[in-house]
Design a protein around this nucleic acid. Structure first.
Length: 803
RNA sequence: GCCCGGGUGGUGGAAUGGCAGACACGGUGGACUCAAAAUCCACUGCUCGAAAGGGCGUGCGGGUUCGAAUCCCGCCCCGGGCACCA
């Protein structure tokens, strides 16, 4: 269609304008009130896909909206540029990951710019930039000094596909790697950890003050997994109750059920297993322990059904401190060393799994809580009076728990204990393309921190990638060999690199002060911008990234590197829905990416942005199809023909229509502003369409058109910029203030009043918005003559006549 | 199993106790055109009816209410998270 709307030329022109004029560059001394908008920095995987377009469209429209609202908006972007895909490409091609990564960054940057998203590009941050790595390594050393980093030998999750260990958070429920999908194995390795558990309680408590989606908060809460209970000591004995001198501790959330303990279970890896197993059970126990050690997490968890095979009797007993009776000690694979004490008291009467185990092994079951009369089930976990429990009898759950713990404490064998499911964050990765851990191993001085002045430690360029996937750092003599910072003697470097989630745990702080060469940032720059006012990203980061970044922020505040009152990094979080294709996740590895380029090159970025906004509410997942993109493109052409000064497609309103149209414009301001605040972008697009349709019918006014252009400017920035410039002598719509609705003008003269009979619509009347109840009733009865027994009048909306 | 979401026309969706289906896609018909595209206009939940008009309708079954897509109870289905956590 030749209406003069030359999409390609116009979009290119304005993108160049915003870039060359540095419209969205912001300085730290900007006089306007600060507002920090951030979309999660992307992994540079190449050109943008639809998920990026959606993410950056939301971010961009907020940047432009808040700027028009009078804020000095910080809108930075960076790249999460370390990671496995680049390293895997390097293994395939033999080429170093750096040029590969840099090329992907150029591609992604250009396609982000091509959808019209604006940033302060001067502030760009890249994880693999030595200026950034230096501080990532420095934070590691600061945390080490503060006792928030430690090294230990542990059984860890090993992904054979990625050839590296994984944090617990990176292993899916089915025991596979969240990245490669490989079955995760167990290995014993000496690894570095962040002591995130030290912040477990704070990470839990501070969730209450966040303006975050409820489901993300719930996911974090569950992941932290706080439970209250008691830990107490048990004496190992023979079958007669004669103590052997061994002791172990158990953790329970139900100390009130102690009288119902009829056996104990230790984890197969428990340190006491060897010592307490009696000679006649040794063979069976050894075989069992060996088998469990060999099993992967998945096999261990999936051995459902055959409970008989999941446990073994040690021959030893422990004395139940509540009634001094000896109870048998079993091993079972479902008891984990990593939670609680690795040993439990089993109360089959009140725990279904214990019930099942007791049934399978012929162990006694004693109920210690009276189930309700109509109770049909087996183990009863609900509340009720204690029974068979001597001095606890008759007490209800909460009181009984308190009394039982008091008793354990009085006896000096136990105490109240809070446990968390959250475990420390394993940060070592056996990969090349990551930020090296700045540690030197000296034969005499052990693990020694690299001195600050030697930072950053950057991996060498002359490396050879092995097809096995092993990190080249492990074989690079030049990198490996160094001297001990303490004694100067020969020493070797740590070859592990950091989890890339370390980079993303502080990048948002660097954006506040990205040019700083002497420090990661100044406190004042952080104070100015943080916390992020609006953070935007995918819900897939609900646990990993968002938990780690919260931990970092709290730790940095406690280490006096950011303002002490900065307890949370992201005040407001929005998690957008995913874009799928045919029901499945869209991803590069599945090869089902739909490229935005095709649409940008035809209907243009504005139409694509508007279409994605219009398709669904921002939080909803979208199953991609382009049915309808013609609709938003058609709409923009209608706007063009309406607003272009040379166009005569739409008549100018005359007479009463002028006021009517201007009033509608004021109502549009009120509606769209409200919808922007509520993230109801799909209905805001509908409002623009309705308004445009109205102008086509009623005729336009300059005020109506200008209002439309200003309100539409955040969503469709190019066309509105062009039309505004043409209408207003080269002025910039994005530099204007956001319009404010005139209350007087948003008033309507008449509204539709519904007349119902018994809740069914029988008539619709046009009435004044401030009609009285009596008048409304009179008009209703006039429209539907009858004698109601009751009248529900809700003027001016409706009158319901009840017979 | 537990915890969150969600289920509305042919399709995406709108409506947070008060006109169900805004807006858009698709479809049908018309105008313009030599024709097509584009554009513009009208209609478009199902059903009975020639029409006027009526009946039905928001996963299923109950309930609360003058009035329920919306609130409550029970169930079914779909998506996500957690899952032997003691």
């Amino acid at each position: 269609m030749d209406d003069g709307y030359e999409v390609q030329a116009i979009e290119r022109k304005w993108q160049e304008h915003w870039r060359d004029e540095a419209t969205y560059h912001i300085d730290n001394d900007d006089p306007r009130p600060p507002f920090y908008v951030l979309s999660m920095y992307p992994y540079p995987s190449g050109p943008a896909h639809m998920g990026h377009v959606r993410n950056y469209t939301f971010g961009d429209l907020i940047v432009r909206y808040r700027t028009m609202g009078g804020y000095g908006v910080l809108s930075p972007i960076g790249f999460d540029s370390f990671g496995l895909p680049a390293e895997n490409a390097a293994i395939r091609s033999g080429e170093h990951p750096r040029p590969f990564t840099d090329a992907r960054i150029v591609e992604l940057s250009s396609s982000i710019q091509r959808i019209g998203a604006v940033y302060d590009w001067r502030r760009m941050v890249k994880s693999h930039d030595p200026n950034f790595m230096r501080w990532t390594q420095w934070f590691f050393l600061q945390f080490l000094e503060a006792g928030l980093v430690y090294r230990k030998m542990a059984t860890v999750n090993w992904c054979p596909g990625c050839q590296t260990v994984l944090a617990n958070e990176q292993v899916l429920a089915d025991g596979t790697c969240e990245r490669s999908g490989d079955l995760v194995e167990k290995r014993d390795l000496e690894q570095w950890y962040f002591r995130i558990t030290q912040y477990a309680q704070q990470l839990l408590d501070d969730l209450d003050h966040l303006d975050w989606p409820e489901r993300v908060i719930t996911m974090q809460r569950n992941w932290i997994g706080r439970s209250e209970g008691a830990e107490f000591e048990m004496q190992v004995s023979d079958d007669k109750g004669q103590p052997t001198g061994h002791r172990f501790r158990v953790y329970t959330t139900r100390p009130d059920t102690g009288f119902g303990m009829t056996f104990c279970v230790l984890a197969p890896e428990h340190e006491l297993v060897e010592e307490i197993t009696t000679p006649e059970h040794r063979d069976e126990v050894s075989a069992f322990v060996a088998r469990v050690r060999k099993e992967s997490e998945v096999e261990r968890m999936s051995s459902e059904g055959g409970l008989e095979k999941r446990g073994v009797f040690t021959g030893a007993y422990a004395i139940n401190p509540f009634n001094d009776e000896p109870v048998p000690i079993y091993l079972a694979d479902y008891v984990l060393t990593t939670y609680g004490t690795g040993a439990i008291m089993a109360v089959p009467g009140q725990d279904q799994r214990d019930w099942d185990f007791a049934t399978a092994y012929g162990l006694p079951i004693v109920r210690t809580v009276q189930p309700p009369d109509d109770w049909q089930g087996e183990a009863y976990v609900g509340d009720g009076p204690a029974i068979n429990s001597a001095w606890l009898d008759g007490l209800h759950k909460a009181d009984a728990i308190t009394k039982a713990i008091d008793w354990l404490e009085e006896k000096g064998i136990g105490e109240r204990k809070v446990n968390f499911r959250l475990r420390d964050w394993l940060l070592s990765r056996q990969r090349f393309w990551g930020c090296p851990i700045p540690i030197i191993y000296c034969p005499d001085h052990g693990a020694v921190p690299v001195p600050d002045e030697q930072l950053p430690i950057v991996a060498p360029d002359d490396v050879e990638f092995r097809p096995t996937g092993e990190s080249p750092l492990r074989f690079h003599e030049g990198f490996l060999n160094t001297t001990c910072p303490i004694c100067g003697g020969p020493a070797v470097r740590e070859t592990d690199t950091m989890d890339t989630f370390v980079d993303s745990s502080w990048y948002f702080l660097r954006f506040c002060d990205p040019w700083n060469a002497d420090a990661p940032f100044t406190k004042s720059a952080v104070e100015r911008w943080m916390p992020v006012d609006q953070y935007i990203g995918g819900v897939e980061h609900a646990i990993l990234h968002l938990m780690y970044a919260r931990f970092f922020t709290k730790a940095l505040a406690d280490l006096d590197m950011v303002p002490a009152n900065l307890r949370e990094p992201f005040g407001r979080l929005f998690t957008q829905g995913m874009i799928r294709l045919g029901g499945g996740k869209m991803s590069k590895s599945k090869g089902n990416l739909v490229s935005p380029d095709d649409y940008v090159e035809t209907v243009g970025a504005d139409a694509l942005r508007l279409f994605i906004l219009f398709m669904a509410p921002p939080a909803d997942d979208i199953d991609w199809n382009d049915k309808g993109i013609e609709g938003t493109s058609r709409f923009l052409h209608r706007v063009w023909r309406l607003a272009e000064p040379e166009s005569d497609a739409v008549a100018t309103a005359t007479g009463d229509a002028i006021t009517e149209v201007d009033r509608a414009a004021h109502r549009l301001i009120a509606r769209v502003t409200d919808e922007f605040e509520r993230w109801s972008y799909n209905t805001a697009v509908a409002a623009f369409m309705e308004f445009t349709n109205l102008l086509y019918k009623q005729g336009s006014t300059p005020f109506a058109i200008d209002t439309l252009l200003q309100l539409l400017a955040p969503m469709a920035p190019h066309i509105t910029a062009e039309l505004w410039a043409r209408r207003h002598d080269g002025e910039h719509v994005h530099l204007r203030n956001w319009p404010v609705a005139d209350q007087e003008m948003t008033r309507v003269d008449s509204v539709t009043m519904i007349v119902q009979v018994n809740g069914k619509v029988r008539a619709k009347l046009d009435v004044s918005p401030d009609i009285s109840e009596a008048e409304a009733t009179r008009l209703a009865l006039e429209a539907v003559p009858m004698e109601p027994s009751r009248v529900i009048a809700k003027p001016p909306k409706l009158v319901n006549l009840v017979t």
